[in-house]
Amino acid sequence: MNIFRLAGDMTHLMSILVLLLKIYATKSCSGISLKTQELYAVVFLARYLDLLTDFFSLYNTVMKVVFIVSSLAIVWCMRYHRAVRRTYDRELDTFRHYFLILGSFVLALIFHEKFTVREIFWAFSIYLEAVAILPQLVLLQRSGNVDNLTGQYVFFLGAYRGFYILNWIYRYFTEAHFGRWIASISGLVQTALYADFFYYYFLSWKNNAKLKLPA
């Protein structure tokens, strides 16, 4: 564990807490893409297949459980909670995310560390996470102004993988055989997808204006 990875995990946890706060405090999920939340649930379920077989540390196991339970709880809330589901922007959240699942799985069948179920699902989860934010970014562009909590949620979600990139650079220089090319390249793509969001988020912060993504 290094400071970059810990900062990344805490930022990731922060994004989830902000989203839970938004949904719980405002009893609304307007501006939130259910499809992105579903993709994240798939990412964590596919990535943490080793939850019950491999034990690295209490931290590692606890965080995996937190990510799986929170992503499933958010999907359940947006689909079935009486008050929340009414605020879901169904007609705006139309990104065909099944293609992202299919594409990521095909890519994982081609590029993986070992041709085993665990490794193919792990690579699949890495590729899927890189593109999982797309439905959410499309929804933000369509839904005019973005409320503060939603903007902060996406900001922390984008920033966490940026910290992981610093972690991979650090591990590359400090560990002999560190070659996590799948995660590193995918992480770069993932963070790059947030570039325009970060730009408009920074502008809104600088001008103290409401966050607005151009359509």
């Binding site: 990875r5 995990d9 990731h12 990535r47 080793d50 491999d54 690295f56 590692n60 965080m63 995996k64 990510f67 560390e113 070992k114 792990w122 992981y164 972690n167 055989h177 996590r180 995660a183």
Partner: peptide
């Protein structure tokens, strides 16, 4: 697998 190839990151 807790060797080098194991995925110790979240």
């Amino acid at each position: 697998a807790t060797g080098p190839e194991a995925h110790d990151e979240l």
